[in-house]
């Protein structure tokens, strides 16, 4: 839902970042307003996942230039947990398995951390179970998964549902979903997508990172961005995704070659 007067939730300006000595992001610009759904597409190594992890505060990445403002404040100054509590959520491409840590306990602790930051009260075990049982419906998840260790032995689809369950509990303002469609069969893709659609409101925004049109058949984006060599090269409406599906990424490379930094960027693309 595009509303030009909606408040800006996330504003990325000229973002440059490295992992080790390797430059990955080379000037990303992106503005997300409340109510919007954005999709970022691009080849492997184009910097999509780096962008998503960096926004969540992953320690492996170093920002070398640029700014990220979340509701006007400097997001990069916050620790990962502070970003989460403030309402930034990253749905992981590969959710981590944590043996021995109960999923229910983990969800409760995380939910309470967010609630406290929102000025609410912590939920006790019983109140939380009521809440979680209600939110399970968003992703049609079996309550048995609450009793298991975090993601341990979950199938790919179950892990992704668990991610969206966390999104449902944490009620974020900016949700970044990193290849949420990978590893999902058609049914699971529909369930997860329906969950995301249910959670999209006029007050929050969603950034979908994906390779495939099929996710965008289920979740209709307001904007589609094409990323290559660490920058956003094109931005358009949902029709851009269809064009990518039809033409592949080669024409993006042509666009890249004609850009000012063609040589350096092409080298980086190969390396990345």
């Amino acid at each position: 839902m595009i509303r030009p007067d909606a408040p800006v939730l996330l504003e990325i300006r000229n973002l440059h970042a490295t992992v080790g000595d390797q430059p990955i992001l080379k000037g990303v610009d992106l503005t997300l307003r409340a109510g919007e759904i954005h999709a970022v597409m691009g080849r492997n190594g184009s910097g999509k996942s780096t962008l998503s992890k960096l926004l969540a505060g992953h320690p492996a990445y170093t920002v070398t230039a640029g700014t990220v403002r979340y509701r006007g404040d400097d997001l990069l100054a916050l620790a990962p947990e502070e970003r989460a509590r403030a309402g930034v959520f990253l749905g992981f491409q590969y959710p981590v398995e944590i043996p021995g840590v109960s999923n229910l306990e983990f969800l409760r602790v995380a939910t309470n951390a967010r609630r406290l930051a929102q000025g609410g009260e912590e939920l006790d075990t019983f109140a939380f179970e009521d809440l979680v049982c209600e939110r399970l419906k968003v992703v049609q998840m079996d309550p048995a998964f609450l009793e298991r260790s975090v993601n341990e032995g979950f199938s790919g689809g179950e892990k992704k549902r668990n991610e969206i369950l966390q999104m449902a509990l944490l009620d974020p303002l900016v949700a970044i979903l990193d290849e949420t469609d990978s590893g999902l069969d058609i049914d699971a893709l529909r369930i997860v997508s329906a969950g995301v659609n249910q959670l999209a409101t006029p007050d929050n925004c969603i950034l979908l990172i994906t390779h495939y049109q099929r996710l965008l058949d289920e979740i209709t984006p307001d904007f589609v961005h094409v990323m290559a060599a660490g920058r956003i090269l094109r931005t358009a409406g949902k029709e851009l995704a269809l064009e990518l599906e039809r033409r592949g990424y080669d024409w993006v490379d042509e666009g890249l070659a004609s850009s000012d930094h063609a040589e350096a960027d092409a080298t980086a693309l190969e390396v990345a």
Partner: peptide, 13 residues
Amino acid sequence: EELFYLRSRGLGA
């Protein structure tokens, strides 16, 4: 990666 996953959900280090 486990620590980051938990921190990205609001748990302190």
